[in-house]
């Protein structure tokens, strides 16, 4: 892959070994013209520091907010973003696509 997702997962492991809370977000499904392909990762630590991307920058903020809750309670979450979604008025994909993002804690 050319995306550099390799380094991202290595960083996630390193962060966790340092004792930081870490969550991994993964694009699991896309419809229409989505900015990042299925399998793309965003990793987040408990302070909101992040690496990688799940969209072109459109929904990362919302994913990070949810990720902080996931780090807190350990329950994985499935998030959906897109124009068909009511959240489109707040955060959405300007490209008109839709994506599903799975967020899990590294324990």
């Amino acid at each position: 892959m050319l995306s550099g997702d390799d380094d991202i997962l290595r960083e996630a492991e390193r962060w966790r070994r340092e004792g930081r809370g870490v969550a991994i977000a993964t694009v699991v499904e896309t419809w229409g013209s989505a900015p990042r392909p299925t399998g793309s990762h965003l990793v987040i630590d408990g302070e909101g520091t992040f690496l990688g991307s799940v969209s072109g920058g459109c929904v990362e903020g919302a994913v990070i907010t949810e990720a902080l809750d996931v780090i807190e309670d350990g329950k994985p979450r499935m998030l959906e973003f897109g124009v068909a979604d009511e959240t489109a008025w707040r955060v959405g994909l300007s490209c008109g696509g839709r994506i599903r993002v799975y967020v899990e804690r590294v324990s």
């Binding site: 997962l9 996630a12 492991e13 966790r16 070994r17 991994i24 899990e104 804690r105 590294v106 324990s107």
Partner: peptide
């Protein structure tokens, strides 16, 4: 995700 799985 378990840290062991991530490390693997």
């Amino acid at each position: 995700m378990n840290l062991d799985i991530l490390a693997l």
